[in-house]
């Protein structure tokens, strides 16, 4: 293609037409803050992690009345203790996986490998969020049912018909599912926007291998 050869000639000819950066300019740049995608994603992941842990743990730690109420409602169950242990194990596992994955991202890899490691790291956070939402969908109806049963002064479960109980559980379950669905949708929308360019470029590279 003649035009491309012409462009190549021009391109190579124009080597010295750039505004040269002095060594002092370059020294200054070394100490500026990076605004890279990986750094942004890392901060978002940390924020997500802190948020989820805070929601789960902080009210329990800082509010005496919440703790007392929680213990009153749920203290007897082996299931509750198992869930608590499982939650901590998952958090620790997730933190280890996340940091290992972030450390494996290096700009000196080839482009495809770099993109793959960023997307893999995002997947880890995605799975953690999915795990939390699944837990919410399964456990919130259960905990709400237990809470209602404990505070039976407000709703008299004894006198509800089976159909009414079924309706109550169904309502709680649907509400939880809807809530989780909306959170999941917003989550994917945000990451869809942030990672749109990366996903597009990764697909383009993958397409070349077919």
């Amino acid at each position: 293609m003649d035009e491309l050869e012409l462009l190549k000639k021009d391109w190579q000819k124009n080597n010295n037409t750039f505004e040269k950066k002095s060594s002092s300019d370059l020294y200054a740049m070394l100490h500026k803050k990076s605004s890279s995608l990986v750094k942004k994603l890392f901060y978002i992941s940390i924020a997500e992690l802190i948020f989820l842990i805070s929601v789960n743990v902080l009210p329990f730690v800082f509010s005496k009345s919440y703790r007392q109420h929680f213990n009153k409602v749920y203290n007897d169950s082996l299931l509750n203790q198992s869930i608590e242990v499982l939650s901590y194990v998952v958090i620790i596992l997730f933190v280890i996986l996340l940091f290992r994955s972030y450390k494996s991202i290096t700009v000196v890899d080839d482009t495809k490998k770099l993109m793959k490691s960023i997307l893999r790291t995002r997947k880890i956070v995605k799975y953690y969020v999915l795990y939390n939402l699944t837990f919410i969908v399964i456990l919130v109806p259960y905990f709400m049912y237990k809470a209602i049963k404990t505070n039976s002064s407000e709703i008299d479960l004894e006198h509800l018909t089976n159909f009414q109980i079924l309706k109550l559980i169904g309502g709680i379950f649907l509400f939880t599912l809807l809530f989780a669905g909306v959170v999941w949708f917003i989550y994917n929308l945000i990451y869809g926007i942030i990672l749109r360019r990366l996903n597009r470029n990764y697909k383009e590279l993958k397409k070349m291998e077919v």
Partner: peptide, 30 residues
């Protein structure tokens, strides 16, 4: 600069620059 400690000199500095430069432009730069 961040990747410089990993540069071991087994490839040319310029070859390494091409890679980091393109990766930044395509993947990391918003």
């Amino acid at each position: 600069w961040k990747a410089f400690p990993k540069f071991r000199g087994d490839s040319k500095f310029t070859t390494w620059m091409y890679r980091v430069g393109l990766n930044t432009a395509i993947t990391l730069y918003r």
